[in-house]
Design a protein around this nucleic acid. Structure first.
Lengths: 257, 257
DNA sequence: CGATGTGTTGAGCAAAATCAATGGGTGTGG
DNA sequence: CCACACCCATTGATTTTGCTCAACACATCG
């Protein structure tokens, strides 16, 4: 039950006490207003901590879950496979994200979830979460909104993969990642490294690693990105948004109160 | 308040009385078990009928909805645009589908919904639906499961667009369409025409109309599809599934009771 | 210090896009 | 009823984007 590693100043407005699930609550508050009482109840959810190394499975297609994993630190992703061995990363998850609300309502998983980096998970027993959702309509709504926002992101990815060329596609993904990361994570003022290998970006964007490599080089050439060693950073988010035609509307952030 | 045009024998097991919303309830029952009482309450939802011609908008990006449209007959789709004018169809909706549960929980639409064919909609006032969802946990769950299944379909489309080549992609879409259509629609024993133009299929699959045309020709060559005049039909669903590597797991159909 | 995973680069290739022209149906209005 | 317009489908020629294959470099880590 140790605390999440990324604690920072609490969000403005009414907030829960700091707890291990603090970042999770902060994430929910980006999309939903939650009375303080509901926040406290969320913060009081029981969980046990689980640490995983990169590529470890959090859930496998066909599994029946008994706990809802919440990402306290590190990154994770959802993926699906085709017969021929190809895979598609269909979502990327960021600290504060719940990884599997779906198992509250559907019997088996239709995709796998894996750790992208080293990861800390709060494993919340499904029964506890179910009870809270049943008792607290605002919490139920927060869960639903979270599910809907993830859906909206998925639709944007469909557009991205289906209709944008490689540089736009990559730029768009990075814009979204940057936006979402800044929603919940603290201590990013000195920048941060994109935690994906080129192969992972390829599987995420429907491209090949070789082509990602060349596209990255082109984006570095425009000054939108910088690389040193194997580290990749966003250098000019405005330029990147320009290239991508990025608009954050689909992320449904709640207007600041 | 006329009845839906596609009534057939009621589903086995406990079912609601036949009503205008019958097909909608049948659809929900494909994914969720619903006590008879809840079915009756759903059937009793107020609505008014709306008829649209092809390409008419049902909802525009940025709109604030006041009613939840339910598709009684005909087909509709969700779409998103990129700057350059390209569009991506991100979902196709089939008779019985609710078109906009999202507006129950999110302020504005992040995509548009349009009629694909001539369409009959049951417009259910949001307030009535909200009241029912609040009063009946089973109905709330049915709505949630419906949202989750649509999400799962979206993920499969990401995989489809990102990782399959043109023939597989087209075949996969047709398999899914066929599967879903048979879930709720009746009177399909003599086959049916795919209600999409080649341009629409292109916008759905991230391809160009010209390439769809050539890919269709190839699939007709294998015998999986047949065309006469401008009509397109599935001739050999098994062959099509084979080509696509189709598995219906992601559609989360409830096991027959 | 070697093994492994990741990134880099080049050459050639394939899938799909683009450009452009044509034709057939359908619906409408004269 | 015919002429016209429009939408959709079709086809060919050409170009482009991104893929494949292959080799090599560089870090990191045991």
């Amino acid at each position: 039950m140790t605390a999440a590693p990324l604690q920072g100043p609490v969000v403005p407005g009414e907030t829960a006490e700091v707890s291990g699930l603090d970042i999770f609550i902060r994430k929910l508050l980006c999309h939903t207003r939650l009375p303080g009482r509901d926040q406290h109840q969320l913060a009081a959810l029981p969980f046990h901590l689980r640490r995983l190394v990169p590529n470890e499975y959090i859930l496998r297609e066909g599994d029946v879950a008994i706990a809802c994993p919440i990402l306290l630190s590190g990154f994770a992703f959802r993926q699906k496979h085709v017969e021929g061995g190809g895979r598609q990363i269909v979502a990327i998850k960021i600290p504060g994200d719940a990884l599997d609300f779906q198992s509250l309502y559907l019997a088996t998983a239709d995709h796998s979830i894996q750790a992208l980096t080293h990861v800390e998970l709060a494993m919340v027993p499904l029964a506890a979460l179910e009870a809270l959702v049943a008792a607290r309509p605002h919490v139920a709504r927060a869960v639903l909104v979270d599910i809907l926002v993830e859906s909206a992101i998925g639709r944007e990815w469909q557009l991205n993969i289906g209709r944008r060329n490689a540089p736009e596609r990559l730029a768009h993904f990075l814009c979204e990642f940057d936006y979402r990361v800044h929603l919940t994570m603290r201590g990013l003022d000195n920048g941060y490294d994109i935690p994906l290998t080129q192969e992972q970006m390829a599987d995420l964007l429907g491209l090949t690693p070789v082509h990602i490599n060349r596209t990255l080089k082109a984006l570095v050439g425009t000054g939108a990105l910088v690389r040193n060693r194997r580290r990749l950073r966003i250098a000019d988010i405005a330029a990147l948004r320009q290239i991508a035609g990025f608009s954050e509307r689909y992320l449904h952030r709640l207007d600041a109160v």
